[in-house]
Design a protein around this nucleic acid. Structure first.
Lengths: 229, 229
DNA sequence: GACCCGGGTGTGTTCCGGACACTATGCGAG
DNA sequence: CTCGCATAGTGTCCGGAACACACCCGGGTC
């Protein structure tokens, strides 16, 4: 079977930058390529877009196929289409940006035949194609977006302590925050549900657990409320 | 001549949302389509991506071809690829977002054979394809971006008054700003060059003219400075 | 020359964000 | 049982920004 067109067409792929948070290290999911080009190199999960699926669906499908992951947050990042970025010919890729709770996905899970692993974003191996650029763009986006949209919670387990939340922001923004001011600000938004539980198995005073209230956020958002770090 | 591939490929286009400022009305450039589908309807300027050009180049080329415009600011916006958005088959479009100084481009200029015109963004005719979505996305982006990057100046003539600048922000952000504070803030950034000229032909006290200092901004940017509102 | 229109500046009040250091609690070691 | 340790949790003060209001300026119109 083959397909013929009057004019040449680039091939279209999607690639996903999936972030996860491991304690206070920000991780990205990579897949080791089995075939040329760049066989043996690590790359972002991704693949070709099918004719009947939307771009978002393609991203979700490839991610599920290659790693078994269904991210809690997925959004389009940027489209990379410089001629020459793929040695096989003209390939345009729509990059996606995803966040997952690492607690839901066993670290270093090799789900398929392919080898998949989490790497610290500050210390990745050399990547295939222009995936280093894609990762860089995704990091920038994460850094910019985390401050004015409550997407950071997608990286944490459902129940978390305020210290965990603060660590998350410190890791992503690459700077330290003041504990008192951070708590004041985040609690003033009234988006966290205070639970009657504390963390377990720690050798010091246990911290109270909180839960992010998605419903309340949606309401406030409609009313013109703006989340801001 | 024809081109054959082993798997089917979507066609790839670029479309441009070009904004211009006319006094205190925000305008968008539209082209009237000559051919089916949507013949006679207004649409965003755009066309097919060639195999040897980058996406940015394709956007610039199509814009020049269809309207003669070379925008002072151009950036990628979002990629739209829902199956069914084009009745001719699967077409994925990379949307771009551009700003021009209307003073450089005669309003209602019909440069080519095609009819091109500026419309108020709040009052456009019914658009072809999903271009209304694209326009909406572009407006959101403009609104978000204008506050933390000095791209608004690309909409004004090289020499402008502070009131013009304030109007621009009020129009884009859809809310009123305090005159005193606006001036204080913008002047405190030290990015405007105060000229020894005033506006002409006004029936009241003439306002002083200013010019945006691109060089100084680049310097400050490198030094970690952040433009904000 | 009176008045009208926006341009441009000053001031007082309130509000918000950032800087800053100590006490409380629970566990484990000895 | 006590002590030590590691982290949880908490309030105040200050300066600058936001906001509201009031005023003078300069030129054109009638």
């Amino acid at each position: 079977m083959s397909y013929t067109y009057e004019y040449p067409r680039p091939a279209l792929t999607v690639d996903c930058v999936v972030f996860g948070l491991d304690d206070d290290d920000l991780k990205v999911l990579l897949i080791r390529r089995g075939v040329e080009p760049f066989a043996g190199r690590w790359a972002l999960p991704g693949g070709f877009v099918r004719m009947e699926e939307s771009l978002d669906d393609a991203a979700r499908r490839e991610l599920e196929e290659e790693s078994g992951i269904r991210p809690s947050h997925l959004e389009q990042l940027y489209t990379f289409g410089t001629p020459g970025r793929d040695p096989r010919g003209r390939v345009v890729t729509v990059a996606y940006f995803a966040l997952v709770k690492l607690s839901d996905h066993v670290p270093h899970a090799a789900t398929d035949a392919r080898e998949a692993a989490w790497f610290s974003v500050w210390d990745t191996p050399k990547l295939a194609f222009d995936h280093a650029d894609v990762l860089g763009t995704a990091l920038q986006r994460l850094k910019g977006k985390v401050r004015y949209q409550p997407i950071g919670f997608e990286l944490l387990p459902p129940k978390f302590t305020l210290t965990q939340l603060q660590r998350l922001y410190e890791v992503v923004l690459e700077r330290e925050l003041d504990k008192r001011n951070f708590r004041k600000k985040i609690l003033a938004m009234d988006l966290l549900e205070e639970l009657d539980e504390v963390e377990q198995d720690v050798s010091h005073r246990a911290a109270r657990l909180y839960r992010f209230d998605h419903k309340k956020y949606k309401q406030l958002e409609k009313a013109g409320f703006n989340f801001e770090l």
